[in-house]
């Protein structure tokens, strides 16, 4: 066991999220394309990492592989030293991985309250809504559907992940569709999240300089490699 992080405010490296030789292939007719080509990386507890790179470079795909939505062609994912590659989405969520989708999902008849209660059944103060700048009284009983604006849906999506407060939190382009004022607020939210939690791994996929500025490390995904 590597104890090099002891004493520096980090928990042990046992809480790291590790990608080992992850490859992901898209089969397109005759031609296969390596979206992710043999990627290895270690996310350490207490770190805020920004993952960036051109459109279509595979950032969301990598996130979906970590969450369990997509399976890699080869490679392993380790959380705290445990191989979770064969675990399904629910199991990974319970182990402490959460993901704020790039495109928020719409429902029929499912309310903001429902989602937040699912995200965290205990302690329902719904303060995550206030954190993302949405009035509780106004939004809690709204259905999560297209009657909400793009920015509102995006903030609700972020709130569900904040509500889970899990070990690994991945935010996929959280700034998309969010106005400048709220964007400043969002940066404060992430900064605070980083400062308050020395044992969490925060991964933000983003193209925005102000978000990169608050990162401990910025990694660039290009042509399938980091």
């Amino acid at each position: 066991m590597d104890k090099s992080f002891h004493g520096s405010g980090y928990k042990t490296e046992r809480d790291a999220l590790e990608l080992k030789n992850i490859s992901f292939l898209i089969i397109n007719g005759e031609r296969n394309r390596h979206v992710l080509d043999n990627i290895s990386f270690k996310f350490k507890p207490g770190e805020l990492i920004v993952l960036t790179g051109p459109n279509g470079s595979g950032k969301s795909t990598l996130a979906e592989i970590i969450v369990g939505i997509k399976s890699p062609k080869s490679g392993q994912i380790l959380l705290g030293g445990e191989d979770i590659t064969s675990k399904n989405i629910t199991e990974r969520a319970k182990l402490g991985i959460s993901y704020s989708f790039q495109q928020p999902i719409c429902f029929k008849g499912v309310t903001v309250r429902d989602l937040l209660e699912i995200a965290r059944p205990e302690n329902q103060a719904f303060k995550e809504l206030e954190i993302v700048g949405l009035e509780k009284d106004e939004y809690l009983d709204r259905e999560v559907n297209k009657t909400l604006s793009g920015g509102e849906l995006k903030r609700i999506e972020i709130a569900t992940v904040l509500a889970r407060n899990s070990k690994v939190m991945i935010f996929d382009e959280p700034e998309a569709g969010i106005d400048i004022w709220s964007f400043d607020n969002l940066i404060k939210v992430f900064k605070k999240l980083r400062q308050k939690n020395k044992d969490k791994i925060i991964i933000i996929i983003s193209h925005q300089k102000p978000i990169m500025d608050i990162a401990d490390r910025v990694i660039i995904l290009k042509k399938g490699s980091l």
């Binding site: 969450v67 939505i69 399904n88 989405i89 629910t90 969520a93 319970k94 959460s98 993901y99 989708f101 999902i105 429902f107 029929k108 008849g109 499912v110 309310t111 429902d114 989602l115 699912i118 995200a119 569900t160 889970r164």
Partner: peptide
């Protein structure tokens, strides 16, 4: 994608399914 979202919030596939149907 609705099932997937609810599973990332910790529901099992069955729980997610019944949540979606009850809401609907």
């Amino acid at each position: 994608e609705q099932l997937t979202k609810l599973m990332t919030l910790g529901l099992t596939p069955d729980q997610a399914e019944s949540k979606i149907i009850n809401g609907f």
